[in-house]
């Protein structure tokens, strides 16, 4: 696999959306290519940053209690 092909598949690799065969091909390329590995780790880091920044909001307890009351 060439670096260009790896770059086009990186989003789906990070999202765990490649087939097993495709994922293995990307993994093998990453293990032998420090530049692409750097890029991959950056994309993983970015995805984690978005997740952790946005998933800290939780429903207020009073709202949860009110809903539970309404639905019971």
């Amino acid at each position: 696999m060439r670096c260009e092909e790896c770059a086009t598949k990186l989003d789906r690799y990070v999202d765990r959306e490649l087939t097993n065969t495709e994922a293995l091909e990307v993994q093998l390329h990453l293990e032998g290519c420090p530049d692409c590995m750097d890029n991959y780790e950056f994309q993983e880091h970015l995805k984690r940053l978005v997740k952790h920044s946005c998933d800290c909001d939780t429903a207020p307890k009073a709202f949860r209690d009110k809903l539970r009351q309404m639905l019971s």
């Binding site: 946005c54 998933d55 909001d57 939780t58 429903a59 709202f63 949860r64 809903l67 539970r68 639905l71 019971s72």
Partner: peptide
């Protein structure tokens, strides 16, 4: 109905976050 509501409420944070965003 209660079982359904209980299961549905386990997803409350996801729905609230989505609605907030």
């Amino acid at each position: 109905k209660t079982a359904f509501a209980e299961e549905a409420l386990t997803h409350l944070d996801t729905l609230y976050r989505g609605a907030l965003r």
